[in-house]
Design a protein around this nucleic acid. Structure first.
Lengths: 239, 239
DNA sequence: CGTGTCCTTGAGTGGCTTCAATCAGTGTGG
DNA sequence: CCACACTGATTGAAGCCACTCAAGGACACG
């Protein structure tokens, strides 16, 4: 729990909610926030229970919903600069660190008050929330209508896009890329509405057709990005 | 297009976004809004294209997303008092009247400006948007993890709950209810991620087990609400 | 009475799941 | 250093649920 970090030097300064804050506001925000590290697999539910919210600084967080009988579904993946928490209401999700995670934490009430004091903050929070709805609906389309192979291709593409933001952002992305999946096969299945074996088989299929390589467990090399986009029925042209 | 309707006497006065408005604000809103009727099946996309938003006053509107090859999915159903439109961004949905619909329309820019002028409006809009996310994620769980019979039961339950709001709202709902489905079998399938034949078969199954009756096409009588809730894996106890 | 739409029902198929075995990688203890 | 256990991933075989294709019924309309 390291306080004293300077928000102005934060890795997600320009992309998280805080990008809407003036220097003075940022200084005020700096005073009420603190950083915290979590290992992969750690439950973050206490974040909600202790009335805390957070920004993801590094790593990936998964939000899951479950049925009483154990069936479960990841309903969102949070990447660096994403917001974690459910203001003005309950929630009902479980949050868990999918990889090692660094969070920027702050009090629920404090944040809600700041939103009322600083209209710019509420505005950008609202816009992000609307974007989240768009993303959720896009995923509904995937869950309901896409085949297993389309689903897996779409997920690889999603991770590729979200991970390479920040590291390097060439105007026109490269046609090939290498990265590590932040999810286990089981988590991929939980996000895609599939079984782990199906995910494995579809990844093998992508590998056999030369679209990707999997030199080692979680490492993926995209050989043919265009083909991957085609297979994913991707509609969002390189954001 | 009937102007001159009094917002203060509106059927959804207390439940739509406008519930956050003071009498003066409501009067101002009254001046920029007008009512419009649409027959079932009419595309409402122009609402977005003409930079207009709306509240649903009566009837049901469906929001759909589609893949290039024609596969499509209803991503949300809008009931009376729900908001139609996507402020601060694109959207990419098709809106269509599922039944005969009456809308309360207003200009996009005007509404966005009002949100900036009246913090209470923006606040309630934000809260509703967050609720929509919760609903979308609940539906993701359904689409990805529930069986066909669970899906159909959940949809009947959803419609039952959303339709009986307003007409009669006993504290503890009755254990039996009768209503008309605002959706065709085809639309039910589009919302549940199923085929029309599967929906038909599962409805027949519910009928044969005595949980519901279907005296006529779209008319449903729920005989055993508790059983229906059980079959739907329903988690939200009578809201 | 014919035509169209919507819904139902049946038969057969296929894609994903289920069950099960194997493999690779890692850590542990003798 | 190696045997062993354990976890995560892969692969195979069999089964099932929802899909596909197809026919027929119910009802409204001209």
């Amino acid at each position: 729990m390291a306080r004293g970090n300077l928000c102005s030097q934060c890795a997600v300064r320009g992309s998280a909610l805080c990008c809407a804050l003036s220097p003075e506001q940022l200084a005020a925000f700096n005073r009420i926030s603190y950083r915290k590290h979590y290992p992969a697999g750690r439950l973050l539910s206490h974040i909600d229970q202790e009335d805390r919210f957070a920004n993801v600084i590094s790593g990936v967080v998964k939000l899951t919903k479950a049925l009483p009988d154990g069936r479960q579904q990841i309903v969102e993946l949070l990447f660096p600069s994403d917001f974690l928490g459910r203001p003005f209401g309950a929630g009902g999700y479980a949050a868990e660190a999918a990889s090692a995670v660094e969070l920027c934490c702050f009090g629920r009430r404090q944040f809600e008050n700041l939103m009322h004091e600083w209209p710019g903050l509420k505005q950008i929070f609202l816009e992000r929330t609307l974007d989240e709805i768009d993303a959720a609906r896009e995923w509904m389309l995937l869950l309901a209508r896409k085949s297993a192979s389309e689903k897996v291709a779409a997920l690889v593409l999603l991770i590729l896009r979200r991970m390479q933001v920040g590291c390097d952002a060439p105007t026109a992305g490269p046609r090939t890329a290498r990265f590590d999946l932040p999810l286990s096969r089981s988590e991929m299945a939980d996000y895609l509405g599939l079984r782990i074996e199906t995910v494995s088989r579809q990844l093998a299929r992508l590998r056999k057709t030369g679209v990707i390589e999997i030199p080692q467990g979680r490492t993926v090399v995209v050989r043919d990005l265009a083909a991957l986009e085609r297979m994913a029925c991707d509609l969002t042209p390189g954001r």
